[in-house]
Simulated assay, not measured.
Amino acid sequence: MQEEKRTKKILMIILGCFLGLVWISPFYLMLTNSFKTKQELFNDTLGLPKTFHFDNYVNSAKDLNIVNTFLNSLMITVISVLIIIVFSSLAGYAIQRTKSKWSKVFYLTFVAAMLIPFQSVMIPLIAVFGRMNMLNRPGLIFMYLGFGASMSVFLYNGAMKGIPQVLDEAAIIDGASRWQIFSKVVFPMLQPTTVTVALLNVMWIWNDYLLPSLVINRPGSQTIPLTMFDFFGQFTKQWHLAMAGLTIAIIPVIVFYFLMQKQIIAGVSEGAVK
């Protein structure tokens, strides 16, 4: 029996290592080839670079107009995530603390909205926003709120079930308003969930291509995914520059994720289990 468990454990370790290698292989190819010359890349794609050519990154940054593009992505991502956090936490608080049939209806509506694929509403959504002259960055941020609120409300609502309502009643006795109860008592206790909501939406919005391509596909206002698409179209034969550009594009969100991965796991568990 013990020997069988040991065999299963070894097999699981081998499987885990294999899956880890499969997952990391694209990043390995991208990173190593970003330091090679064009000729070296085609001659030895899998090997390590003989000489590290950092000028690939300099040239890619210039061609990507990295400062302007990075600021566009940063502005849209930060504003969108902040708005999603504020509105979703308020909605989750109102739904969880209001004991009525309508609160259940609203909650189920948010949950059901998670199942609706963007492609099914893409054309009518763009048509409506086009008539309202909102095919711009504010319109894009508003769309991100609509698509990001469902999952965020679900996580906040689940996390708030673990916060005793007695705390609300005690704050009311002390003379606190409903807004003070939420902002000073409830919301600070939702920090793991807030970090999770922020990180999941940051990774989604930062890497999103389809929605910005329909809304803000104009020179000077493009995000990193849009610029990378044009970059690949322009440098399809210069893969060493393309790999360097991809590395530049994904570094911020990867660093952000690895710094906060513990909070993601804690927040998802708190929001989904309780």
Score class of each variant (00 low, 15 high):
residue 110 F to D: 03
residue 25 S to H: 04
residue 222 Q to C: 03
residue 59 N to R: 11
residue 155 L to A: 12
residue 71 L to K: 11
residue 271 G to P: 05
residue 27 F to L: 11
residue 1 M to P: 09
residue 240 H to Y: 12
residue 131 R to Q: 13
residue 82 L to D: 09
residue 218 R to M: 06
residue 131 R to F: 07
residue 88 S to P: 06
residue 43 N to T: 10
residue 14 I to N: 06
residue 263 Q to K: 10
residue 92 G to Y: 03
residue 55 D to E: 12
residue 65 N to M: 09
residue 160 M to H: 03
residue 244 A to V: 05
residue 2 Q to P: 00
residue 266 A to T: 13
residue 99 K to T: 11
residue 213 S to A: 09
residue 106 F to Q: 01
residue 128 V to P: 01
residue 218 R to Y: 07
residue 144 Y to P: 01
residue 259 L to K: 09
residue 216 I to E: 07
residue 38 K to R: 14
residue 227 T to E: 13
residue 155 L to Q: 08
residue 241 L to G: 12
residue 32 T to S: 12
residue 159 A to N: 10
residue 69 T to L: 04
residue 47 G to I: 04
residue 149 A to T: 12
residue 14 I to L: 13
residue 130 G to A: 14
residue 58 V to E: 13
residue 212 P to N: 04
residue 163 I to D: 06
residue 111 V to M: 08
residue 255 V to D: 13
residue 235 F to V: 10
residue 107 Y to C: 02
residue 3 E to Q: 08
residue 23 W to G: 06
residue 142 F to P: 01
residue 273 V to S: 10
residue 234 Q to S: 13
residue 167 L to K: 01
residue 255 V to S: 12
residue 84 I to S: 07
residue 205 I to G: 02
residue 53 H to L: 09
residue 198 A to V: 07
residue 110 F to V: 07
residue 108 L to M: 14
residue 264 I to H: 00
residue 9 K to R: 12
residue 144 Y to G: 03
residue 154 F to P: 03
residue 244 A to Q: 09
residue 191 Q to Y: 14
residue 236 T to A: 14
residue 192 P to Y: 00
residue 87 F to G: 00
residue 155 L to G: 11
residue 273 V to W: 06
residue 8 K to R: 11
residue 272 A to S: 14
residue 226 L to M: 15
residue 191 Q to G: 09
residue 167 L to N: 00
residue 65 N to F: 03
residue 151 M to T: 10
residue 231 F to C: 11
residue 243 M to W: 04
residue 49 P to C: 11
residue 181 I to L: 09
residue 124 P to S: 09
residue 72 N to Q: 11
residue 166 V to S: 11
residue 144 Y to W: 09
residue 18 F to K: 02
residue 128 V to W: 15
residue 177 S to P: 05
residue 205 I to D: 02
residue 7 T to W: 07
residue 10 I to K: 14
residue 134 M to H: 08
residue 169 E to M: 06
residue 177 S to I: 03
residue 97 R to N: 13
residue 92 G to M: 02
residue 39 Q to G: 10
residue 14 I to M: 08
residue 128 V to E: 11
residue 149 A to W: 08
residue 234 Q to P: 00
residue 262 K to S: 08
residue 204 W to E: 05
residue 45 T to R: 14
residue 35 F to A: 05
residue 271 G to A: 07
residue 157 N to V: 04
residue 117 P to I: 05
residue 234 Q to G: 01
residue 94 A to D: 00
residue 256 F to N: 06
residue 232 F to H: 13
residue 59 N to E: 14
residue 139 G to E: 10
residue 43 N to V: 03
residue 211 L to C: 00
residue 149 A to G: 02
residue 232 F to G: 12
residue 261 Q to W: 00
residue 229 F to Q: 03
residue 226 L to A: 05
residue 151 M to L: 13
residue 246 L to V: 09
residue 145 L to S: 04
residue 29 L to K: 04
